[in-house]
Simulated assay, not measured.
Amino acid sequence: YYHHYASQDGGERYDGGFGRQGFGPGDGAGQEEDLSDLFSDLFGTRQRSGGGAYQEFHARGPDLRYQLPVDFLEAVRGSKKSVTMPDGKHIEITIPAGVKDGQTLRLRGKGAPGYGKGSAGDALVTIAVSPHPVFTRDGDDIEIELPITVDEAVLGAQVDVPTILGSVSMTIPPGASSGQRLRLKGRGIKRGKTTGDQTVHLKVVLPKKIDDTVRGLAEQWREASTFDPRADIRRKT
């Protein structure tokens, strides 16, 4: 029956189900040309004369990631560090003043080489700031805990206070207490046109060994004074 049907005038030859809309020679050529345009747009390739295989693959090189340990003072002041890249080249990295722990710096063109005529990628350097034994940071402000003696707290004093740019003289007012905060204006981190402050937290510290003089003064104070540092707590509870 199939042979009889296919041989009749006007009969359609069986083509496996695709009919005349199947993948004929003309259709395949058009498809190849379309793919050529697609890859050329995506990857910057070009064909040999007359078509055929692709040549000259151009693409930007991948970015490379690094972690750079930075000292606390280097981070808050700003600095320059020399680092060795994987290809053996030495480059100098500028650490901007006030850079934060975990912040990433982008070095244009310092990543992996590009493909063909593609440009090199970037180096992404993540900053790892080490803590400082004295200073801590709150935004652009610097904080420090400053030990003072009993007589400095009672009588007041002029003392040297370390800052991120060197020591400065600060006045402790008479009657200062542990936990009291004093502010050094403009002694914090400078970024652009703004500069933070430094907050000094006072901490009254007694000597480990109390001598007879200190003990005698404390006993006289206890007998003569009516000061109660816990009175406010009792009123609120």
Rank of each mutant, 00 (worst) to 15 (best):
K81Y: 14
M85N: 02
V154D: 13
R215H: 09
D71F: 11
H90F: 12
Q47Y: 07
K117N: 10
Y1C: 01
L35N: 10
I91K: 10
D87N: 15
G10T: 11
M85Q: 08
Y5S: 03
V129W: 04
G196N: 02
D34P: 05
G78Q: 06
K185S: 06
L155D: 06
A59S: 15
V204K: 03
G98P: 04
G16W: 11
A53N: 10
R65Q: 10
R46K: 13
L182A: 01
F135M: 03
V76H: 02
Q198T: 03
G30W: 04
T84V: 13
L124P: 15
H90K: 15
T94N: 11
S7W: 00
T136G: 03
L107Y: 10
L206E: 05
R181N: 00
V150K: 00
R65Y: 10
S49I: 05
Q103W: 09
D160A: 04
D211V: 14
A123T: 11
R235C: 14
V168Y: 09
T94D: 12
E56F: 10
W221I: 04
L68V: 09
D212S: 14
D160I: 04
K80T: 11
Q180K: 02
D37R: 15
D141K: 13
D232Q: 14
P173G: 14
A157S: 03
E219W: 05
T195G: 05
D151P: 00
Q180E: 08
P147Q: 03
R65K: 14
D101Q: 05
G166A: 00
S119G: 13
S36E: 13
A120Q: 06
T149L: 04
I144D: 00
E92Q: 15
G216R: 15
R191N: 06
F23I: 06
G156E: 06
I189C: 05
H58E: 11
S225I: 02
P147L: 00
G186V: 00
E33T: 14
L105K: 02
P147S: 08
P69S: 12
H3P: 01
Q67E: 15
G118N: 12
H4T: 03
V204D: 04
T163S: 01
A153N: 01
G111Y: 13
T194G: 05
T84Y: 15
D9K: 04
P173I: 15
G188R: 05
V200Q: 00
T237L: 13
Y14M: 13
G30R: 07
L105S: 07
D27P: 01
K203M: 05
R48K: 11
H4L: 13
P173V: 15
T194C: 02
G24A: 13
S82C: 11
S225M: 06
Y2V: 04
R60D: 07
I164G: 00
E12P: 01
K117D: 12
F57Y: 09
K209L: 10
K203Y: 01
V200K: 00
A6I: 07
D232C: 08
V83E: 05
G175K: 02
A153W: 05
S169L: 09
A97Q: 07
S177T: 07
I142V: 02
M85I: 02
G114N: 09
V168W: 08
F135G: 01
E12Q: 06
G16P: 09
P113H: 05
G88D: 14
L182N: 07
Y115F: 12
D101I: 08
